[in-house]
């Protein structure tokens, strides 16, 4: 089978890769590009562990063909934080920081998907209600937490982001 040559913008950097026409973006990210932060929980679009942001929209990378990202922009969990400082957490996005402060992860396998889903939510709705958060995250399964602490962390992160001065807003 001839492989396709795809050029895309991944976490702000121009990259290219070869893929089979049927290969999912998830598999290319994980197996070809070795970006294993994006997880596979089901491969069928039902768990959200593979969530990435494609041209500003939240998608399941297991349901996205790798070839579809030609000329577009992909954000994965690896691109959310800035460099980690010596103190440990300074580079984190407020979403990541709040998830940690609220102990909103146990095993953590759903966390990368949650981070991406929340980022997509807060990018479009800076002041969501609890109900909006719950419905937005309904595509992201978490089996460990019962969602309580995740929802609280998201509301807290939203408040923090709203209060950050313009120049300190994360990219």
């Amino acid at each position: 089978m001839t492989r396709m040559h795809i050029t895309t913008c991944l976490n702000g950097e121009e990259i290219d890769f070869l893929c089979e026409p049927h290969q999912s973006l998830l598999h290319v990210l994980r197996d070809e590009l070795k970006l294993t932060g994006t997880k596979e929980g089901c491969g069928t679009g039902d768990c959200g562990a593979c969530s990435v942001i494609l041209d500003g929209r939240l998608v399941n990378s297991c349901l996205t063909l790798a070839a579809e990202v030609q000329g577009r922009s992909v954000e994965t969990v690896e691109g959310v934080a800035g460099p980690v400082s010596q103190a440990g957490t300074v580079g984190l996005h407020p979403i990541q920081q709040k998830l940690l402060e609220h102990a909103a992860l146990q095993c953590g396998v759903c966390t990368p998907g949650i981070v991406m889903a929340v980022k997509a939510l807060l990018d479009r709705e800076p002041d969501p209600s609890e109900r909006e958060v719950r419905y937005w995250l309904a595509g992201n399964l978490c089996r460990c937490t019962g969602y309580d602490k995740i929802v609280r962390a998201v509301l807290d992160a939203a408040a923090e982001l709203r209060n950050l001065p313009e120049e300190r807003q994360p990219a």
Binding site: T36, G37, E78, G88, A103, G108, T111
Partner: peptide
């Protein structure tokens, strides 16, 4: 007390390696 877990940064940044992440 409620310190931030030591493996926390790895888990929110995607650096933590789960079963399928090794090759």
């Amino acid at each position: 007390t409620r310190p931030i877990r030591h493996d926390g940064v790895d888990k929110v940044t995607g650096r933590a390696q789960f079963g399928a992440d090794y090759s």
